[in-house]
């Protein structure tokens, strides 16, 4: 099994450190979700993983070999960046087909048929210039590059940004189709957490430049519970448990607890225990505490 590993990755821009010593192991054959708030460092991390940005400290390795400036490792990687075409950006003058041709010269296993199929599926006009495309269309172009690259490790930054719900569904299906056929590894960053939650075998939660969780999605969600009730009762019940995101309203209080293996919420309290979804888990972990 192949592994793409971050060893103590730190990244600073000037005095500002945006990634703080990230250790992360990505195993081949999985779909990972990378979630985090705006500015958490997702794009920076993905850029460093793929040799697009240098790390200030630390290293990325693919099967024990450094990725940095390594042609052999780069042949197995693809990070399809989110395209932000501003009016002055020269890239805007590229036609879609020229952009894809340029991509094809670099990705060794580029699948031309898949590229054509995807162009038809999404209805992207190959002759259009990038600066004439909507945000959604640009996302489609980045998706096409990612899928057609056939790279063993494929990183996608916000692939569904700007896509309508139908196109998002299309993307999830295409991703699963590609994944079940080839077993490629995907790392996908997204803000539309609930839609993607069921696709993700593992979820990596990045908060303020640190990986605060990396766990099987089902297991993480399975051990998180929302506990609500009279404040004293809730406090007494969850006293010894890992608790996040307490909220109180009048006499009632609600909190999210994470049960460790073998732990359970003690019996004998007047409380309601509810299962939660990944989005709630994420908000609880990254949202801080709020008083209503």
């Amino acid at each position: 099994m192949s592994q793409l590993v971050c060893h103590g990755i730190t990244k600073s821009y000037g005095d500002k450190e945006v990634l703080h010593g990230i250790d992360l192991t990505l195993e081949s054959g999985k779909i990972y979700g990378l979630i985090g708030r705006n500015g958490a460092g997702k794009t920076t991390l993905l850029s460093i993983l793929s040799n697009q940005n240098p790390a200030t400290a630390g290293a990325v390795t693919l099967d024990q070999e450094p990725v940095w400036e390594n042609r052999k490792a780069l042949d197995r990687l693809c990070f399809s960046r989110e395209l932000n075409i501003s009016s002055e950006s020269g890239l805007g003058n590229y036609r879609v087909k020229d952009y894809l041709r340029a991509a094809a010269t670099y990705y060794t296993h580029w699948d031309r048929d898949l590229e054509k199929n995807l162009m038809t599926t999404f209805g992207v006009d190959a002759k259009k210039r990038l600066n004439k495309l909507s945000k959604g269309m640009l996302s489609m172009v980045t998706i096409i590059v990612a899928l057609a690259s056939k790279a063993e490790f494929t990183l996608l930054d916000e692939p569904v940004a700007g896509l309508d719900v139908v196109a998002r569904e299309q993307f999830y299906r295409l991703l699963l189709q590609e994944y079940t056929q080839t077993g490629r590894t995907f790392v996908i960053s997204t803000h539309i957490i609930e839609e993607a939650a069921d696709l993700l075998e593992e979820v990596i939660i990045l908060d303020q430049g640190r990986v605060i969780r990396k766990e099987n999605t089902q297991e993480l969600v399975g051990r998180a519970f929302q506990v609500t009730g009279l404040a004293e009762q809730v406090e007494a019940a969850i006293g010894n448990l890992e608790t996040h995101h307490k909220e109180s309203l009048g006499r009632s209080e609600s909190a999210m607890v994470f049960l460790q293996k073998g732990q359970s919420i003690p019996e004998g309290y007047e409380i309601t225990v509810q299962p939660v979804n990944l989005q709630k888990v994420f908000v609880a972990l990254c949202g801080g505490e709020t008083q209503i």
């Binding site: 609930e194 969600v221 019996e267 004998g268 007047e270 409380i271 225990v273």
Partner: peptide
């Protein structure tokens, strides 16, 4: 009493649903 609105709805034998809904382990 602890009132579980359980994730494991299989235990409660709730009405079967033909589509996947939230709040319930997907594998169940």
């Amino acid at each position: 009493m602890v009132n579980y609105v359980s994730n494991e709805q299989r235990k409660t034998g709730e009405e079967m649903q033909e589509f996947l809904t939230e709040q319930k382990s997907i594998y169940l």
